[in-house]
């Protein structure tokens, strides 16, 4: 089966600024794909190229097998988009905006609309100008998820939602994913991406720096370990892959490269360990590893 989104070497410049500088993004049909990157990394620009709102300067872009610029209208029948900044018409009601956006896309499922409206606790009779950011996002989410489409492109769709609505959102994504739809989810909420996404791409300065399944990515990073033994723990500082070691007599805590974990565990076996806790690398750590200390792109992209 073809990938739902195939982006290779995408370049997009605005004047002298290269917003996208050879970006790659491959999203398989049917998966929920996390799209991560700090502010200004080029996520929204990428999404607008995918929607044919911006024209790529160079690189290959295929959306559902078509060219997003030339085949925009035909492709838009098959996809739904939730923008990061939901701007609605101030004098339309939320219900009108949902019906309008759904209808312009090719129609929406009335029962599904009702169900989602209740799930997201949205009052459709209010004028859009009176909605908060979260409520405007709900309008866009209901309009998108009430459409029976193959691909959902969601640009930070939950940044204004409360935790209850976040749960409703995750449930909804699982539902559409369950019926085979593909989802591209740009997000800053790591727990959300970890809960929903089978694969993720991390971009920085307009380039992809990591891409793969969460398990694959975890393998590339470090596990946090804390141990307590009956005797002073020594020799850890000489082991390969051990970082940020804090050893205080019978306690030690450190991070270890996942690939070196077996060697470290063998070393620890020589001590009489009482307590050992380890935290698998979180997406957040993974993300921070790329962005936390201003590491240049060249060092992290192998």
């Amino acid at each position: 089966m073809n990938d739902a989104l195939e982006v290779t070497g995408l370049v997009k410049a605005f004047g002298s600024t290269r917003a996208l500088d050879g970006l790659d993004l491959h999203v398989r049909t049917g998966e929920v794909h996390g799209f991560l990157g700090p502010n200004g990394a080029g996520k929204t620009t990428t999404i607008r190229v995918l929607l044919g709102l911006l024209h790529a300067d160079s690189g290959q872009v295929k959306v559902l097998g078509g060219d997003p610029w030339k085949d925009a209208v035909a492709l838009h029948h098959r996809l739904a988009y939730v923008p990061g900044d939901v701007n609605l018409w101030p004098n339309l009601s939320g219900g009108e905006a949902i019906d309008l956006l759904g209808d312009l896309r090719g129609g929406l499922d009335k029962a599904r609309r009702q169900e989602l409206m209740e799930r997201f606790q949205l009052d459709p009779a209010k004028r859009c100008r009176t909605y908060s950011k979260g409520n405007r996002q709900k309008v866009a989410l209901v309009a998108a998820f009430a459409s029976d489409v193959e691909l959902f492109i969601l640009d930070e769709p939950t940044s204004g939602l409360d935790p209850l609505m976040e749960a409703a959102f995750q449930q909804t994504v699982r539902e559409v994913s369950g019926r085979g739809a593909t989802v591209l989810l740009s997000s800053h909420i790591f727990s959300e991406v970890e809960a929903l996404c089978s694969r993720v791409s991390i971009i920085r300065d307009g380039r992809t720096v990591e891409s793969g399944t969460l398990a694959e990515l975890r393998h590339l990073t470090r596990t946090a370990v804390a141990v307590e033994a009956a005797e002073p723990i020594t020799g850890l500082d000489g082991l390969p892959g051990v970082h940020d070691l804090v050893a205080e007599g019978m306690r030690a805590s450190f991070d270890v490269d996942s690939a070196e974990l077996p060697g470290v565990l063998r070393h620890l076996a020589a001590f009489e360990v009482h307590v050992l806790t380890s935290h698998p690398p979180t997406l957040e750590k993974l993300f921070m590893r790329h962005y936390g200390n201003g590491v240049p792109v060249s060092e992290v992209s192998r």
Binding site: L51, L53, H76, Y81, P83, D85, N87, L101, L104, R105
Partner: peptide, 15 residues
């Protein structure tokens, strides 16, 4: 510039 066109043109409405 207000962003409403983005929402409309991301649906099956041609420019």
């Amino acid at each position: 510039s207000g962003g409403q066109a983005e929402a409309v043109l991301a649906t099956a409405v041609g420019r």
